[in-house]
């Protein structure tokens, strides 16, 4: 009974932490999808410069730990340059560029998986490269990418817990601040885990439903 009471008492704080986790995740993933798509297309164009931009970005982000990136953006950059980032902004930027780097690879592989006859057929009708990409190649590629997208979304949701390191009151940080006061780490972290699970499991269900729906068409 006591356990339940402890969790119930913590719930408002945890739920507001969960809200912040969702907010950061959603903003970051929307931005990351745009960057991932653009750099993903860069990585398969004929232009050496565009390909280099994409490669350097991906290698740099994937080659360093996310926690270091978070700290670097929040503490490192402002110590040298005249920018003042809120923890929230720094957090969004870090999660965004990190997710984007992995999404670049997902987009690249997805687009490459479409038979090149599709691009040629589109071009031979008279569509430009970008029209063909948008109308013919991407719609087919995106369908195949859904499982990989969802996988990355889930990773990014979990990654936001690292933002507790710069004092953002997301779900993990909220939990930490509660058990630092009431010393009930077991109950609180259990509740934190359940809340993450709820978000992630809902996303999994959503993606299964989406895949089924797109399969029909």
């Amino acid at each position: 009974m006591e356990t339940i009471q402890i969790i119930l008492d913590a719930l408002p704080t945890l739920l507001s932490g969960m809200g912040l986790t969702l907010e950061i995740t959603i903003i970051s993933l929307v931005l990351a999808m745009v960057i991932g798509l653009v750099l993903g297309v860069f990585s398969i164009t004929k232009s050496k410069i565009l390909r280099a931009i994409s490669t350097v970005f991906v290698d740099m982000i994937r080659g360093t730990p996310l926690l270091v990136q978070i700290l670097f953006i929040y503490f490192g950059i402002p110590s040298v340059f005249d920018v003042n980032l809120t923890a929230f902004a720094a957090g969004v930027i870090a999660i965004t560029i990190n997710a984007a780097a992995y999404l670049v690879e997902i987009f690249r592989a997805g687009i490459n998986s479409i038979d090149k006859g599709q691009m040629e057929a589109g071009r031979s009708i008279g569509f430009s490269y970008w029209q063909t990409m948008r109308l013919i190649v991407l719609p087919q590629a995106v369908r195949r990418m859904i499982p990989a997208f969802v996988n990355q979304f889930i990773v990014s949701i979990k990654d936001t817990s690292l933002l507790s390191a710069i004092g953002i009151a997301e779900l993990t940080f909220s939990g930490q601040s509660i058990y630092a006061a009431n010393f009930r780490a077991f109950e609180i972290l259990f509740a934190v885990g359940v809340l993450y699970f709820v978000i992630i499991y809902t996303l999994s269900l959503l993606s299964r439903w989406l895949e089924r729906r797109l399969d029909v068409a």
């Binding site: 006859g117 040629e120 057929a121």
Partner: peptide, 11 residues
Amino acid sequence: MVFQQFNLFPH
């Protein structure tokens, strides 16, 4: 242009 492999848009 008509291709050997048709290249219709499957979607």
